[in-house]
Write a protein that binds this DNA or RNA. Structure first.
Lengths: 227, 227
DNA sequence: TGATGTGAAGCGGTTCACAGCC
DNA sequence: GGCTGTGAACCGCTTCACATCA
């Protein structure tokens, strides 16, 4: 175990490992090897071992990883051992869809409130979640201990909303506006840009000879050379 | 210009350049240098030049790029010079929100149809878009010339829906189910996994000393050494 | 023996630095 | 002089290969 800068690619994979471990638990397995995990989704086993080794020596040589133990470790590492409260800004269709997105509930995230500037929307409810005036953001954040903000507002307002959110003390923001934002360096900003993803699909369609390289497996299972 | 494999990172950036060029046009600019673009979003100018040079010599030395000309080139490269028709599978909240997502309309994508298996939903409309029986997928795809599918179905059905979609001849798929799917190698699959993004935020919150490295700019504007 | 943890090699993408051209 | 296009250096992530240990 080394104290190094952990890449976001690594933490993303931890999420995937965790999901897979949950599945394995459901199937009644007790241990799993890095090779076993690697085969399930087509990753490299060395990478899995390396990812995990950043955080500790969780494995047992000759055996593999105890699933339940490893699950607890990853849950802890990802901070999923405590609930997070989410505030969604923008009660348009996207914001409302996110408000009852199954994925939030599944992983210890609770949507505590929606926010909008539109008088007509304020006070209404989406499922269990009430829509508040964006003016009251700071206050509600404190009251409900909101620690994650989701921006589902039009691109032209995204930067100013981000600043408002930052002032309220939020340190983690997920942005759906298709525009690059500037965040303070102590704030984690994650932008999900659907426009870019779409245009990337379009590029592929315009150029169909450009095959999906990821699925071509060039790794003939090379014999291990001993010595 | 070289014929090489173009990385997806490059095409993603092309989307961003295109947006910026549109903005510049709106502001009445005629030309822009790679440095000028680089400053707008905090990229490296060499990278911009390299990205563009994969596709041709669009620039003029000593001048920069003619904005209108470059826009046309990028639009063509990304295949945005023709309309794409999108079919969304899953008329839950997410699917419906996507059906009238402003981002689709903005970039030459039209949502032609929604699909679901739920009898009660079939025949209803979301804005202009009708909800069809998933059984009729192939047929509607042909009728409406749908070339992009969006999967907004629960994770457990995603793989089978992907296969159905593939059989119908669709070559570009955007998946919102939080599960890694296997696609045929001639099909471009792009997964947007909100769960992973959320858990990545959670990791950051659990470990606040882990600053947002992206915003720390280590590149002191080094003096150029002329021999 | 069998699987982990890890230095070293490999690889792909980014940045530098400058020749080439307007 | 200014800016593009590009080989070379650099950097970080992935994969290999193996020493290590239950």
């Amino acid at each position: 175990m080394k104290v190094e800068k952990i890449s976001e690619l690594t933490t993303n994979r931890l999420s995937i490992y965790l999901r897979c471990l949950n599945e394995l638990t459901a199937q009644g397995a007790k241990t799993v090897s890095s090779d076993g995990l690697a085969q399930k989704f087509h990753l490299n086993s060395a990478q899995i071992r390396k990812d995990l080794a950043y955080f500790g020596e969780f494995g047992v040589r000759g055996v593999g990883y105890y699933i339940d133990d490893l699950r607890k470790h990853i849950t802890k590492i990802l901070g999923l051992d405590r609930r997070h409260c989410v505030g969604i800004i923008g009660a348009g269709r996207l914001g409302m869809a996110l408000a009852d997105y199954y994925g939030f509930a599944q992983t210890n995230f609770t949507v505590a409130a929606l926010f909008d500037a539109d008088r007509k929307k304020i006070g209404q409810k989406v499922g269990e979640v009430e829509i508040f005036d964006i003016k009251d953001f700071s206050e509600i954040v404190k009251r409900d201990k909101i620690d994650v903000a989701v921006l589902a507002v039009p691109a032209e307002f995204a930067q100013e909303v981000l600043e408002k959110v930052t002032e309220a003390g939020i340190k983690a923001v997920m942005n759906f506006a298709p525009i690059p934002l500037r965040a303070r360096s102590d704030v984690k900003l994650k932008t999900v840009d659907l426009t870019i993803s779409l245009e990337s699909l379009s590029y592929f369609l315009a150029k169909p000879n450009n095959l999906n390289g990821k699925n071509v497996k060039p790794n003939a299972p090379k014999a291990r050379i001993k010595k």
